[in-house]
Simulated assay, not measured.
Amino acid sequence: MRIGMKMLGISGTIIGEKTSSVVRKVVKHAALLEPDLKTEMLDLRDYEVQFCDGRNPAAYNLDTQKVMAAVLSADCFVIGTPVFQASMAAPLKNVFDLLPPDAFRDKVIGFIATGGTYQHFLVIENQLKPIAGYFRAYVTPDYVYAHRDHFNDRHEVVDASVLQRIKGLARQIVEMSKALQGIRTAAG
């Protein structure tokens, strides 16, 4: 992996802690796998992101510009959302709407979703993966879906199979990103 490659974890909600907890675990594990990987966490609870309305990016408030800049400066991503009404959280969709079409082009994305039913994993398949396709991103084969029963009362994942999927997702993001970096370097 080239020096300076950066993974950005995005917790795409402004409420709750479960999604952020899982995203942070993937980012942390990726950093353990690849010591040269720079990591950053973007928790939308920490920002006052304005709604996308088509204005010039420089006209948005500072928090909105920081979020856009963080995404544009990253080389790979782990993006998480809770599932509400069988859909991704609105703050995450707003971030996607704010970004230019090439924001994720040729970059690797691993997805996470958390929810209250065991069928909500379908949001990853039916909504998040098509959005990544629009952005021309590479999506990891695996993803992590965590049900509320997979957490303890401190919002930490305690389910062994989910913990294994977290490690697997981190590995896939790192390995795919390294492979793509190698291809780019070889192509000159």
Score class of each variant (00 low, 15 high):
Arg24Cys: 15
Phe77Thr: 10
Ile183Thr: 08
Arg24Glu: 15
Ala58Phe: 00
Arg2His: 14
Ala170Glu: 06
Ile10Asn: 00
Ala90Ser: 09
Thr19Val: 05
Gly182Tyr: 04
Leu33Gln: 08
Thr64Pro: 05
His147Leu: 05
Gly80Met: 01
Met68Pro: 04
Val162Ser: 10
Leu169Gly: 01
Leu98Gln: 03
Met176Phe: 06
Asp75Pro: 05
Val108Asp: 03
Gln119Leu: 12
Phe151Met: 01
Lys66Met: 14
Leu33Asp: 05
Ile109Val: 10
Tyr60Arg: 12
Lys38Thr: 06
His120Gln: 06
Asp142Pro: 10
Arg45Asp: 08
Val174Met: 11
Lys93Pro: 00
Gln65Met: 10
Met88Tyr: 00
Pro100Ile: 07
Ser21Gln: 01
Phe121Thr: 13
Val67Lys: 14
Glu156Ala: 06
Ala69Ile: 12
Ala170Gln: 11
Ile166His: 08
Ala160Cys: 11
Gln85His: 13
Gly110Asp: 03
Thr19Gly: 15
Val158Cys: 12
Arg55Gln: 06
Ile3Cys: 15
Met41Ile: 04
Ile183Asn: 11
Gly4Cys: 04
Ile173Lys: 08
Ala90Pro: 02
Leu72Ala: 08
Lys66Tyr: 09
His150Ile: 13
Arg171Ser: 10
Gln65Asn: 07
Lys28Trp: 00
Asp46Gln: 14
Val95Thr: 00
Gly4His: 12
Tyr138Cys: 14
Ile3Trp: 14
Arg154Cys: 07
Ala90Ile: 00
Val49Cys: 15
Ala137Gly: 08
Ala132His: 07
Tyr47Lys: 14
Pro91Glu: 02
Ser161Leu: 10
Pro130Asn: 00
Thr13Gly: 12
Thr185Lys: 15
Ile173Ser: 01
Met41Glu: 07
Arg45Ile: 13
His29Met: 07
Ala132Lys: 01
Leu62Thr: 15
Ala137Ser: 09
Thr140Ala: 03
Val78Phe: 15
Arg55Val: 13
Ile112Asn: 12
His155Phe: 13
Met1Ala: 14
Ser87Ile: 01
Asp153Thr: 11
Gln127Asn: 06
Arg55Lys: 08
Phe77His: 04
Arg105Glu: 06
Gln65Asp: 03
Ile10Gly: 05
Ile109Arg: 03
Val26Gln: 09
Thr13Cys: 12
Leu32Asp: 14
Asp63His: 02
Phe135Leu: 04
Val83Thr: 05
Leu72His: 15
Thr19Leu: 07
Gly12Tyr: 02
Val83Cys: 14
Val144Ser: 02
Phe135Val: 07
Gly168Leu: 02
Ile15Lys: 13
Pro100Glu: 09
Tyr143Asp: 13
Ala89Ile: 01
Met88Gly: 00
Ile112Pro: 08
Gly16Arg: 04
Thr64Trp: 03
Arg154Asn: 04
Asp102Glu: 12
Gln164Cys: 10
Thr140Ile: 05
Lys178Ala: 11
Met68Cys: 10
Thr140Pro: 02
Leu33Glu: 05
Tyr134Lys: 02
Thr185Gly: 15
Leu169Val: 01
Leu169Pro: 03
Ile10Tyr: 01
Ala89His: 00
Ser87Tyr: 12
Gln50Thr: 08
Ala58Trp: 00
Val71Ser: 06
Asn126Lys: 11
Gln50Met: 11
